[in-house]
Amino acid sequence: METSKAIKLKVNGKQLELLAAPNSTLLEILRNNGHVEVKCGCEKGDCGACAVILDGEAVDSCLTLAWIADGSEVQTVKGIGTEATPHPLQTAFIEEGSVQCGYCIPGIIVAAKVLLDENPDPTDSDIRVALSGNLCRCTGYTRIFSAIHKAAQVMREGAQKNG
């Protein structure tokens, strides 16, 4: 049986070499290496709490084997923005009161980020489909939807100014 090997991951811009067994998931190696902002809610792709951006695509890190992610670029909620340089999504989530217990939020911001990268002016329906893999039990999503609309608007206005 093959044992662990070092895999290369660029996580939030930082190149890492992490030890992973064939049966390690991306979720496990991220969390075991300090990226506990990636949450674990079900380990089977039902809840989306563990979502990360893997080479531009939102994936459930619990359903991604670490070896298969070898050589990839990973972005977690912390890579999307920080207190010093918040992403408009984070600002909007804070301002709109979209955060309650907060456990689903890292995954939801990941899914929303990928949506807005791809679709700067999403409809309500686009947002619903994009978040269909993210369970939130506290908010009823209403304020999450409004925050995503708001962030999209801020980003479009920003792009206009810069363009």
Partner: peptide, 21 residues
């Protein structure tokens, strides 16, 4: 007033530590 909840920013930035973290 709809003031920003004290816990919201760190939850949105992914800084909040839960028990399993």
């Amino acid at each position: 007033k709809p003031l920003i909840r004290t816990d919201a920013p760190n939850k949105a930035y992914g800084n909040t530590l839960y028990a399993g973290d």
